[in-house]
Protein backbone atom coordinates (compact mmCIF):
# COMPACT_ATOMS: atom_id res chain seq x y z
CA UNK A 1 0.00 0.00 0.00
CA UNK A 2 1.28 3.41 -0.90
CA UNK A 3 1.63 6.09 1.67
CA UNK A 4 1.94 9.75 0.95
CA UNK A 5 4.91 11.84 2.06
CA UNK A 6 2.69 13.58 4.58
CA UNK A 7 1.66 10.29 6.10
CA UNK A 8 5.26 9.13 6.33
CA UNK A 9 6.24 12.36 8.04
CA UNK A 10 3.35 11.91 10.42
CA UNK A 11 4.52 8.37 11.12
CA UNK A 12 7.94 9.60 12.16
CA UNK A 13 6.55 12.45 14.18
CA UNK A 14 4.17 10.09 15.90
CA UNK A 15 6.97 7.68 16.75
CA UNK A 16 9.01 10.54 18.20
CA UNK A 17 6.03 11.70 20.21
CA UNK A 18 5.52 8.21 21.58
CA UNK A 19 9.19 7.94 22.55
CA UNK A 20 8.84 11.23 24.39
CA UNK A 21 5.76 9.90 26.12
CA UNK A 22 7.63 6.75 27.08
CA UNK A 23 10.36 8.84 28.65
CA UNK A 24 8.07 10.93 30.80
CA UNK A 25 6.01 7.95 31.89
CA UNK A 26 8.86 5.51 32.37
CA UNK A 27 11.24 7.85 34.14
CA UNK A 28 9.18 8.33 37.32
CA UNK A 29 9.00 4.60 37.64
CA UNK A 30 12.75 4.37 37.29
CA UNK A 31 13.05 7.12 39.89
CA UNK A 32 11.01 5.01 42.29
CA UNK A 33 13.16 2.00 41.47
CA UNK A 34 16.40 3.90 42.04
CA UNK A 35 15.10 5.50 45.21
CA UNK A 36 14.14 2.10 46.59
CA UNK A 37 17.73 0.89 46.27
CA UNK A 38 19.18 4.09 47.72
CA UNK A 39 20.77 4.78 51.04
CA UNK A 40 18.36 7.00 52.97
CA UNK A 41 20.82 9.72 53.97
CA UNK A 42 22.26 10.02 50.47
CA UNK A 43 18.79 9.96 49.04
CA UNK A 44 17.66 12.80 51.30
CA UNK A 45 20.74 14.78 50.39
CA UNK A 46 20.07 14.37 46.68
CA UNK A 47 17.63 16.50 44.78
CA UNK A 48 16.31 16.51 41.26
CA UNK A 49 16.62 13.60 38.87
CA UNK A 50 18.16 10.28 39.83
CA UNK A 51 19.92 8.24 37.20
CA UNK A 52 21.10 5.53 39.56
CA UNK A 53 20.51 4.72 43.21
CA UNK A 54 21.95 7.37 45.53
CA UNK A 55 24.31 5.23 47.58
CA UNK A 56 23.32 1.60 47.13
CA UNK A 57 21.48 0.06 50.07
CA UNK A 58 19.13 -2.91 50.33
CA UNK A 59 17.84 -1.96 53.77
CA UNK A 60 14.41 -1.02 52.53
CA UNK A 61 13.87 -4.35 50.80
CA UNK A 62 15.28 -6.20 53.76
CA UNK A 63 12.72 -4.49 55.97
CA UNK A 64 9.90 -5.38 53.60
CA UNK A 65 10.82 -9.03 53.16
CA UNK A 66 11.80 -9.42 56.77
CA UNK A 67 8.13 -9.05 57.63
CA UNK A 68 6.76 -12.52 58.26
CA UNK A 69 3.41 -11.61 56.72
CA UNK A 70 4.61 -10.54 53.32
CA UNK A 71 4.42 -13.91 51.57
CA UNK A 72 1.12 -14.68 53.19
CA UNK A 73 -0.06 -11.29 51.94
CA UNK A 74 0.94 -12.13 48.39
CA UNK A 75 -0.88 -15.45 48.66
CA UNK A 76 -4.04 -13.88 50.04
CA UNK A 77 -4.03 -11.15 47.42
CA UNK A 78 -3.63 -13.73 44.68
CA UNK A 79 -6.69 -15.59 45.93
CA UNK A 80 -8.75 -12.42 46.30
CA UNK A 81 -7.76 -11.15 42.87
CA UNK A 82 -8.50 -14.42 41.08
CA UNK A 83 -11.74 -15.22 42.82
CA UNK A 84 -12.92 -11.63 42.91
CA UNK A 85 -12.25 -11.03 39.25
CA UNK A 86 -14.07 -14.25 38.34
CA UNK A 87 -17.14 -13.19 40.31
CA UNK A 88 -16.94 -9.71 38.81
CA UNK A 89 -16.75 -11.01 35.26
CA UNK A 90 -19.72 -13.34 35.52
CA UNK A 91 -21.91 -10.81 37.31
CA UNK A 92 -20.90 -7.90 35.12
CA UNK A 93 -21.37 -9.88 31.93
CA UNK A 94 -24.86 -10.91 33.00
CA UNK A 95 -25.72 -7.37 34.03
CA UNK A 96 -24.33 -5.93 30.82
CA UNK A 97 -26.15 -8.49 28.72
CA UNK A 98 -29.49 -7.89 30.39
CA UNK A 99 -29.24 -4.12 30.26
CA UNK A 100 -28.13 -4.17 26.63
CA UNK A 101 -31.40 -5.82 25.59
CA UNK A 102 -33.25 -2.70 24.58
CA UNK A 103 -36.41 -4.65 23.75
CA UNK A 104 -37.09 -5.18 27.47
CA UNK A 105 -39.91 -3.07 28.87
CA UNK A 106 -38.01 -2.48 32.10
CA UNK A 107 -34.70 -1.80 30.41
CA UNK A 108 -34.76 1.95 30.85
CA UNK A 109 -35.89 2.04 34.43
CA UNK A 110 -33.44 -0.70 35.33
CA UNK A 111 -30.62 1.20 33.75
CA UNK A 112 -31.62 4.41 35.48
CA UNK A 113 -31.77 2.68 38.84
CA UNK A 114 -28.35 1.21 38.24
CA UNK A 115 -26.87 4.59 37.31
CA UNK A 116 -28.38 6.14 40.43
CA UNK A 117 -26.17 3.88 42.56
CA UNK A 118 -23.15 5.51 41.00
CA UNK A 119 -23.94 8.83 42.63
CA UNK A 120 -25.98 7.87 45.69
CA UNK A 121 -24.42 5.62 48.28
CA UNK A 122 -25.59 4.79 51.75
CA UNK A 123 -22.17 5.17 53.28
CA UNK A 124 -19.86 3.04 55.32
CA UNK A 125 -21.94 2.49 58.42
CA UNK A 126 -24.98 0.79 56.86
CA UNK A 127 -22.69 -1.22 54.58
CA UNK A 128 -20.76 -2.38 57.60
CA UNK A 129 -23.92 -3.35 59.43
CA UNK A 130 -25.15 -5.22 56.34
CA UNK A 131 -21.95 -7.22 55.97
CA UNK A 132 -22.11 -7.95 59.66
CA UNK A 133 -25.68 -9.19 59.44
CA UNK A 134 -24.90 -11.36 56.45
CA UNK A 135 -22.26 -13.07 58.55
CA UNK A 136 -19.42 -12.14 56.23
CA UNK A 137 -17.39 -10.30 58.84
CA UNK A 138 -13.77 -11.38 58.99
CA UNK A 139 -14.19 -13.52 55.89
CA UNK A 140 -12.87 -12.96 52.40
CA UNK A 141 -16.42 -12.83 51.04
CA UNK A 142 -16.74 -9.39 52.63
CA UNK A 143 -14.03 -8.24 50.22
CA UNK A 144 -15.57 -9.84 47.15
CA UNK A 145 -19.35 -9.98 47.31
CA UNK A 146 -20.21 -6.33 48.16
CA UNK A 147 -18.15 -5.24 45.15
CA UNK A 148 -19.39 -7.97 42.80
CA UNK A 149 -20.33 -5.40 40.19
CA UNK A 150 -18.69 -2.09 39.44
CA UNK A 151 -21.39 -0.07 37.73
CA UNK A 152 -18.92 1.90 35.67
CA UNK A 153 -17.52 -1.34 34.28
CA UNK A 154 -20.99 -2.72 33.72
CA UNK A 155 -21.86 0.27 31.59
CA UNK A 156 -18.66 -0.02 29.56
CA UNK A 157 -19.30 -3.71 28.94
CA UNK A 158 -22.89 -2.99 28.02
CA UNK A 159 -21.74 -0.46 25.45
CA UNK A 160 -19.50 -3.10 23.90
CA UNK A 161 -22.30 -5.66 23.89
CA UNK A 162 -24.55 -3.19 22.13
CA UNK A 163 -22.17 -3.05 19.20
CA UNK A 164 -22.42 -6.80 18.56
CA UNK A 165 -24.36 -7.15 15.30
CA UNK A 166 -27.98 -8.06 15.96
CA UNK A 167 -28.04 -10.32 12.90
CA UNK A 168 -25.71 -12.81 14.58
CA UNK A 169 -27.94 -13.03 17.60
CA UNK A 170 -31.08 -13.46 15.53
CA UNK A 171 -29.67 -16.27 13.50
CA UNK A 172 -28.57 -18.00 16.67
CA UNK A 173 -32.05 -17.67 18.09
CA UNK A 174 -33.47 -19.28 14.97
CA UNK A 175 -31.12 -22.17 15.66
CA UNK A 176 -32.79 -22.46 19.08
CA UNK A 177 -30.13 -20.77 21.21
CA UNK A 178 -31.25 -19.37 24.57
CA UNK A 179 -29.98 -16.24 26.27
CA UNK A 180 -27.20 -18.01 28.15
CA UNK A 181 -25.92 -19.53 24.94
CA UNK A 182 -26.06 -16.22 23.15
CA UNK A 183 -24.18 -14.49 25.95
CA UNK A 184 -21.41 -17.04 26.32
CA UNK A 185 -21.14 -18.28 22.73
CA UNK A 186 -21.68 -15.13 20.72
CA UNK A 187 -21.66 -11.89 22.64
CA UNK A 188 -18.71 -12.55 24.95
CA UNK A 189 -16.36 -14.04 22.34
CA UNK A 190 -17.09 -11.07 20.09
CA UNK A 191 -16.24 -8.68 22.91
CA UNK A 192 -12.96 -10.22 23.98
CA UNK A 193 -11.03 -6.92 23.91
CA UNK A 194 -13.50 -5.43 26.38
CA UNK A 195 -13.42 -8.60 28.46
CA UNK A 196 -9.65 -8.20 28.60
CA UNK A 197 -10.09 -4.61 29.76
CA UNK A 198 -12.54 -5.78 32.41
CA UNK A 199 -10.08 -8.40 33.64
CA UNK A 200 -7.42 -5.74 33.87
CA UNK A 201 -9.61 -3.19 35.63
CA UNK A 202 -11.11 -5.60 38.10
CA UNK A 203 -7.85 -7.39 38.81
CA UNK A 204 -5.98 -4.13 39.40
CA UNK A 205 -8.88 -2.93 41.54
CA UNK A 206 -8.73 -6.00 43.77
CA UNK A 207 -4.96 -5.88 43.81
CA UNK A 208 -4.85 -2.30 45.05
CA UNK A 209 -7.80 -2.43 47.40
CA UNK A 210 -7.17 -2.32 51.11
CA UNK A 211 -10.03 -0.37 52.63
CA UNK A 212 -12.55 -3.21 52.70
CA UNK A 213 -9.92 -5.49 54.21
CA UNK A 214 -9.15 -2.85 56.78
CA UNK A 215 -12.76 -2.55 57.82
CA UNK A 216 -13.98 -6.14 57.52
CA UNK A 217 -10.99 -8.31 58.36
CA UNK A 218 -9.99 -8.84 61.97
CA UNK A 219 -7.56 -11.64 61.50
CA UNK A 220 -4.21 -10.48 60.17
CA UNK A 221 -3.66 -13.96 58.69
CA UNK A 222 -6.19 -12.93 56.07
CA UNK A 223 -4.66 -9.58 55.24
CA UNK A 224 -3.99 -8.83 51.58
CA UNK A 225 -0.59 -7.63 50.47
CA UNK A 226 -1.56 -3.95 50.45
CA UNK A 227 -2.50 -4.02 54.11
CA UNK A 228 0.73 -5.76 55.08
CA UNK A 229 2.65 -3.13 53.16
CA UNK A 230 0.69 -0.33 54.76
CA UNK A 231 1.64 -1.65 58.16
CA UNK A 232 5.29 -1.76 57.15
CA UNK A 233 5.03 1.74 55.75
CA UNK A 234 3.40 3.18 58.84
CA UNK A 235 5.83 1.34 61.07
CA UNK A 236 8.70 3.05 59.31
CA UNK A 237 7.20 6.49 59.00
CA UNK A 238 9.78 8.62 60.72
CA UNK A 239 7.50 11.63 60.96
CA UNK A 240 5.22 9.94 63.44
CA UNK A 241 8.00 8.80 65.72
CA UNK A 242 7.80 11.63 68.15
CA UNK A 243 9.38 10.29 71.26
CA UNK A 244 11.48 7.60 69.65
CA UNK A 245 15.17 7.31 70.29
CA UNK A 246 18.08 7.99 68.03
CA UNK A 247 20.05 4.84 67.49
CA UNK A 248 17.18 3.44 65.49
CA UNK A 249 18.24 1.94 62.22
CA UNK A 250 14.75 2.74 61.07
CA UNK A 251 15.66 6.27 60.25
CA UNK A 252 18.08 4.85 57.76
CA UNK A 253 15.27 3.35 55.71
CA UNK A 254 12.28 5.47 56.60
CA UNK A 255 12.57 7.46 53.41
CA UNK A 256 13.42 4.71 50.99
CA UNK A 257 10.97 2.10 52.20
CA UNK A 258 8.15 4.12 50.69
CA UNK A 259 9.63 3.40 47.30
CA UNK A 260 10.47 -0.23 47.97
CA UNK A 261 6.87 -0.97 48.88
CA UNK A 262 5.73 0.51 45.58
CA UNK A 263 8.07 -1.75 43.65
CA UNK A 264 7.10 -4.79 45.69
CA UNK A 265 3.42 -4.11 45.32
CA UNK A 266 3.25 -3.10 41.67
CA UNK A 267 5.75 -5.27 39.79
CA UNK A 268 3.55 -8.38 39.74
CA UNK A 269 0.39 -6.60 38.67
CA UNK A 270 1.88 -4.46 35.94
CA UNK A 271 2.96 -7.68 34.24
CA UNK A 272 -0.70 -8.53 33.68
CA UNK A 273 -1.28 -6.03 30.92
CA UNK A 274 1.25 -7.33 28.39
CA UNK A 275 -0.43 -10.73 28.64
CA UNK A 276 -3.83 -9.24 27.95
CA UNK A 277 -2.63 -7.26 24.98
CA UNK A 278 -2.97 -10.21 22.64
CA UNK A 279 -6.73 -9.69 22.78
CA UNK A 280 -6.24 -6.22 21.38
CA UNK A 281 -5.39 -7.40 17.87
CA UNK A 282 -7.65 -5.91 15.32
CA UNK A 283 -10.23 -7.84 13.40
CA UNK A 284 -9.20 -11.34 14.40
CA UNK A 285 -12.20 -12.08 16.51
CA UNK A 286 -14.99 -10.81 14.35
CA UNK A 287 -13.61 -12.80 11.48
CA UNK A 288 -13.29 -15.93 13.55
CA UNK A 289 -16.89 -15.93 14.65
CA UNK A 290 -18.27 -14.95 11.30
CA UNK A 291 -16.29 -17.68 9.58
Amino acid sequence: MKTSAGERAFGWLNALLMIGLCFITLYPFLYVLFASFSDATSFLQSSGLLFRPAGFDLGAYRAVFHNPMIMKGYGNTLIYVTLGTAINLVMTAIGAYVTSRSQLYFNKILMFLIVVTMVFQGGLIPSYLLVNELGMMNSMWALLVPVAINTFNLIIMRTAFQSVPVSLEESARLDGAGDWTILFRIVLPLSMPVVAVMILWYAVGHWNSYFAALVYLRDSEKYPLQLVLRDILIANNTDTMMAGSASDDKYAIGETIKYATIIVSTLPIICLYPFLQKYFVKGVLVGAVKG
Binding site: T41, S46, M241, M242, A243
Partner: peptide
Protein backbone atom coordinates in the same frame (compact mmCIF):
# COMPACT_ATOMS: atom_id res chain seq x y z
CA UNK B 1 15.11 16.73 55.56
CA UNK B 2 17.16 17.56 52.50
CA UNK B 3 18.07 20.99 53.85
CA UNK B 4 18.89 19.65 57.28
CA UNK B 5 21.07 16.83 56.01
CA UNK B 6 22.92 18.92 53.43
CA UNK B 7 24.08 21.44 56.00
CA UNK B 8 21.84 24.28 54.89
CA UNK B 9 19.50 24.71 57.84
CA UNK B 10 20.51 26.34 61.11
CA UNK B 11 17.47 25.97 63.32
CA UNK B 12 13.85 24.93 63.51
CA UNK B 13 11.30 23.59 65.95
CA UNK B 14 11.19 19.84 65.97
CA UNK B 15 10.62 16.58 67.83
CA UNK B 16 13.00 14.91 70.19
CA UNK B 17 12.78 11.55 68.46
CA UNK B 18 11.60 12.41 64.95
CA UNK B 19 13.90 15.45 64.82
CA UNK B 20 16.95 15.59 67.07
CA UNK B 21 17.19 11.81 67.20
CA UNK B 22 16.36 11.28 63.57
CA UNK B 23 18.91 13.74 62.21
CA UNK B 24 21.59 12.49 64.57
CA UNK B 25 20.96 9.05 63.12
CA UNK B 26 20.98 10.23 59.53
Amino acid sequence: DNKMTTDLLGSTATYNGGGIGKYAGL
